[in-house]
């Protein structure tokens, strides 16, 4: 199975791990989950749509990253997965 990851677990960053899947599934683990769960979900799905990726499983371990960081981590993780 192809897998890719990007980011770190330091404060204000996120570690994003992607692997091939059927359809899109996103799991989020965040220190600000109570406040920003939906926004993190939208950021990930928005980036997937922009990259035209339709079959993937994304795991986000978030330490308070802003949306642009999350998007960048998703994109790089996918690029690494695709090698």
């Amino acid at each position: 199975m192809k897998i890719g990851s990007a980011g770190t677990l330091t404060s204000n960053d996120a570690l994003v791990t992607v692997r091939e899947g059927v359809g899109i599934s996103v799991s989020i683990e965040s220190i600000v989950d109570a406040f920003f769960h939906d926004q993190i979900d939208w950021a990930v799905k928005g980036e997937l749509a922009r990259l035209n990726v339709r079959n993937i499983h994304v795991t986000v371990q978030d330490k308070g990253a802003l949306d642009f960081t999350i998007r960048a981590r998703v994109r790089t993780a996918i690029e690494r997965m695709e090698g």
Binding site: V32, A34, F35, F36, D38, Q39, L66, D67
Partner: peptide
């Protein structure tokens, strides 16, 4: 503007 508007539990 930086963070987005948080849900306030």
């Amino acid at each position: 503007a930086i963070t987005g508007i948080p849900v306030r539990p």
